[in-house]
Structures are given as structure tokens and as C-alpha cells.
Amino acid sequence: MITMNDIVLEGHPTLREVAKEVPLPASEEDKQTLTEMLQYLKNSQDDEMAAQYDLRPGVGLAAPQLGIKKRMLAVHFEDFNGKSYSHGLFNPRIVSHSVELGYLSSGEGCLSVEREVPGYVPRYARITVKATDLNGEEVKLRLKGFAAIVFQHEIDHLNGVMFYDHINHDNPFSEPENAKPVDR
């Protein structure tokens, strides 16, 4: 079982490296790791489990956050319209995106960052992601709003990018051009 002790924190070199493609079909070990990543997110959102195991709640987790340099990510959340997303994905990639941008008015957080980093994080408002799921099936996901933001945050981890790299450092709360908040 993955716990907070397994999650590496900012400053760890793996968080700044580009992760390697996972050879497919995925090995049993990689499937097991990805399954455990997804289970961490589910456990972290269960109040009893989170308290028992001292888990910080999360909606996404990428393998580099565990010190694993592989293109694997897990997401488990409900968007603002009540739509559920629960995926373990190998080699996810953004194949198309909108010109329009979106951001969370409250900013973003990260399981690998134990401090508040205020500011708007501009991201594409809509994206299409292709990946391979835990069953070895090719999936294509059309995402918008909060879901698009979560997936971009996790895919950034696979490319050695942290969410705060996107914040305007001179004026963290200046509204990004061509962007709308997705949570209002």
C-alpha cells in the first residue's frame, strides 16, 4: 500500500526528469504499481482510511511522485458537474487541445508540494488524451474544465514540470490571457 512516506517531495530529482515510456503490454509489476497508485487516491478520499493511514487527499498521482521514472498516472475524482473519473493510465499523451485556457480560481496543489503556492495556473480548457489503461486497452478521453486541469497537472509530472512553473511570478493572480476560471 502506498502511503505519504512513498511520495517524494519537491527538490527530489525525479520530479524534474522526463519519465520513460512504459513498454506495452505492461509488466505485472507496472500494473501492480499503477493499481496501487489508483488505490492510494481512493483511500486518500475516504475520511476513515485517510485518518488511519495519515494520507493527504489527492485527485491525481504520477509515477515520478513515487520516484519512479515511468509514464504512468492515476486519477480519481469527481468534476464540478458530478461526473466521475477513475483511471490508471500508461503513456498518456495530449493529442489535441483548445486555444482557450482555463484555471482554478483557488490555484492548484500537489501531493509533492507541502506548502501553499498562490497563483493562477493557466492550462488548456479542453484536451484530448490518448493512453493505455490497466486492461491494456487503448483509450481516448475528451476532457474539459476541472478534468482537463487534473490530467494536465499529472502529465506535466511525466515531463518534469511542476504546477508552479506555469504561475506568473511577477503577478501570480493576473488573469491569464484568453482564460476563464473553470470553478465559478
Score class of each variant (00 low, 15 high):
residue 44 S to T: 03
residue 44 S to E: 01
residue 45 Q to F: 02
residue 46 D to P: 00
residue 46 D to M: 04
residue 47 D to V: 11
residue 48 E to C: 02
residue 49 M to G: 01
residue 49 M to H: 02
residue 50 A to V: 06
residue 50 A to Q: 05
residue 51 A to V: 04
residue 51 A to G: 03
residue 51 A to L: 08
residue 52 Q to M: 06
residue 54 D to P: 03
residue 54 D to F: 04
residue 54 D to W: 06
residue 55 L to P: 03
residue 56 R to C: 03
residue 57 P to K: 14
residue 58 G to M: 07
residue 58 G to F: 08
residue 59 V to K: 03
residue 59 V to L: 13
residue 59 V to P: 00
residue 59 V to Y: 08
residue 60 G to Q: 01
residue 61 L to C: 04
residue 61 L to F: 02
residue 62 A to D: 00
residue 62 A to F: 00
residue 63 A to M: 07
residue 65 Q to S: 04
residue 66 L to P: 04
residue 66 L to Y: 08
residue 67 G to T: 07
residue 69 K to Y: 02
residue 69 K to T: 08
residue 70 K to I: 00
residue 70 K to V: 00
residue 71 R to C: 05
residue 71 R to E: 05
residue 71 R to H: 08
residue 71 R to N: 05
residue 71 R to G: 06
residue 71 R to W: 04
residue 72 M to V: 11
residue 72 M to Y: 02
residue 73 L to R: 01
residue 73 L to N: 01
residue 73 L to Y: 01
residue 73 L to W: 01
residue 74 A to M: 05
residue 74 A to P: 03
residue 75 V to G: 01
residue 75 V to N: 01
residue 75 V to D: 01
residue 76 H to S: 13
residue 76 H to Y: 15
residue 77 F to M: 04
residue 78 E to T: 12
residue 78 E to R: 09
residue 78 E to M: 10
residue 80 F to V: 04
residue 81 N to Q: 14
residue 81 N to L: 05
residue 82 G to V: 05
residue 82 G to N: 06
residue 83 K to Y: 07
residue 83 K to I: 02
residue 84 S to G: 05
residue 84 S to D: 11
residue 85 Y to M: 06
residue 85 Y to R: 05
residue 85 Y to N: 03
residue 86 S to M: 09
residue 87 H to G: 03
residue 87 H to Y: 15
residue 88 G to R: 00
residue 89 L to M: 14
residue 90 F to E: 00
residue 91 N to Y: 06
residue 91 N to R: 11
residue 91 N to G: 06
residue 93 R to W: 07
residue 94 I to C: 07
residue 95 V to M: 11
residue 96 S to A: 06
residue 97 H to K: 14
residue 97 H to T: 08
residue 99 V to H: 15
residue 99 V to M: 10
residue 101 L to F: 12
residue 101 L to M: 14
residue 101 L to A: 09
residue 102 G to F: 08
residue 102 G to W: 06
residue 103 Y to F: 15
residue 104 L to C: 14
residue 104 L to M: 15
residue 104 L to F: 12
residue 105 S to R: 14
residue 105 S to L: 10
residue 105 S to E: 14
residue 105 S to Q: 14
residue 106 S to D: 13
residue 108 E to A: 10
residue 109 G to F: 11
residue 110 C to Q: 11
residue 111 L to C: 13
residue 111 L to K: 11
residue 111 L to V: 08
residue 112 S to G: 14
residue 113 V to N: 14
residue 114 E to Q: 12
residue 116 E to L: 15
residue 116 E to R: 11
residue 118 P to M: 15
residue 119 G to Y: 08
residue 120 Y to I: 08
residue 121 V to G: 13
residue 121 V to Y: 13
residue 122 P to W: 10
residue 122 P to L: 09
residue 122 P to Q: 12
residue 122 P to F: 09
residue 122 P to T: 07
residue 122 P to A: 09
residue 123 R to G: 10
residue 124 Y to I: 04
residue 124 Y to V: 04
residue 124 Y to P: 13
residue 124 Y to R: 15
residue 127 I to W: 12
residue 127 I to Q: 10
residue 127 I to D: 10
residue 128 T to Q: 14
residue 128 T to K: 08
residue 129 V to F: 15
residue 130 K to S: 12
residue 130 K to H: 12
residue 130 K to D: 15
residue 130 K to Y: 10
residue 131 A to Y: 02
residue 132 T to M: 02
residue 133 D to V: 00
residue 133 D to Y: 00
residue 133 D to I: 00
residue 133 D to E: 04
residue 134 L to W: 10
residue 135 N to L: 05
residue 135 N to T: 07
